[in-house]
Amino acid sequence: MDIHQIFSPKALAGEVAVVTGGGSGLGYAIARDFAACGAEVVITSRSAERLEAAELRIAEETGQLCSSLPTDVRNEDEVARLRDFVTNRHGPAGIVVNNAAANFFSRAERMGPRALNTVLDTDLQGTFNVTRAFVPDMLKEQRGTILNVTLPYPERGFPGFSHAGAAKAAIVSMTASWAYEWGRYGIRVVGLAPGPIPTEGVATNMLATDDPWAPFVQTIPMRRLGQPFDISAAAVFLCSPAAGWITGTNVIVDGGTYLNTSPEVSL
């Protein structure tokens, strides 16, 4: 589906949007549809090559240009450089999407400190670093939206990925805290929790089986897997004026999967 079947090409006009992890997967889909809806978009990841390819694809698919800067969200100096890059080229960011994440299967009893910290530093610390860099401008402008990509009901656990589940649970908590602290300044903070989406990254890092998606379809009330568009369309809505009174919540977009308990995972 084309985003313009739902939203105006000017739905995000005048916005400067930063999308971390925007070179591929859900981050790319969000960045593409933000650009298609009129935002000036800056994407980041650690791979300059991936970012360059994503820039070209966004231009081809939307007719809009976007900018990019390789950034390790774990590194405060690199994040500060990103903030300066965005401000100098586009002006203050009014939308920040914290999507950058690290994830891989690891049984809890075999997980070492390095594995744990790799995920916590990227997901949790990275979300904190990026938000802390951009929120001063939002406070000055008295407006802004921070969208944190999370998990549906992380408190239920995430078997095989307890490091990622812990990071996302913390981000859900920070989302609510920040929404309360900054709401009086016109800043909204929202969690976006995707369900099973067959992206390349998920298939590679999380579901290394011959038919990884088949077990999930039967747990979804709508009996279909999600697509990146399901998430990007939700992101456009949540970052648009139409969601102007939505803040502090974790919006689940998963076809109703959360209604079931977590599917059994082979450990």
Rank of each mutant, 00 (worst) to 15 (best):
A29C: 06
Y153N: 12
Q5W: 09
D77N: 10
L65F: 04
T145D: 03
P70D: 00
R110N: 12
A13R: 09
T131K: 09
Q5S: 15
Y180R: 15
G195R: 10
N98G: 02
V202P: 04
L51C: 13
T150L: 07
A53F: 05
G255C: 12
I43N: 01
L147S: 08
G38R: 05
V19P: 02
L147R: 09
D137F: 11
Y153V: 12
D84F: 06
G25C: 01
M174R: 12
E78C: 00
A29K: 08
P154I: 10
G191V: 08
R74W: 02
G63W: 09
R184Q: 14
Q218E: 15
P113Y: 01
A36D: 13
H163G: 10
V96N: 00
A176I: 10
I197Y: 04
I187H: 05
V19L: 03
T261A: 15
S47T: 07
I43K: 01
D84Y: 03
W178H: 05
P70W: 00
A243Q: 07
M222N: 11
V190E: 02
G186K: 14
G91C: 07
V41A: 01
M174S: 09
F105R: 10
I252D: 02
D121H: 05
L238R: 02
M222P: 02
V217H: 10
P159S: 02
L151K: 09
F85Q: 02
R50G: 15
F237Y: 15
G256P: 07
V202R: 11
D84V: 07
D72Q: 01
A100T: 01
E109I: 08
A234F: 03
F158L: 12
I95K: 01
V265I: 13
A13M: 06
I3C: 08
C239P: 08
G21H: 05
E155N: 09
A101W: 00
V172D: 14
V253S: 07
R89L: 12
T209S: 14
Y153R: 11
M222Q: 13
R57W: 03
T257G: 06
R110I: 03
F158G: 05
L82T: 00
Y258I: 13
V189C: 08
I146N: 04
E61F: 13
T261L: 06
A193V: 06
G201Y: 13
Q218H: 10
A31M: 10
R188T: 09
L26M: 07
D211M: 05
R32Q: 15
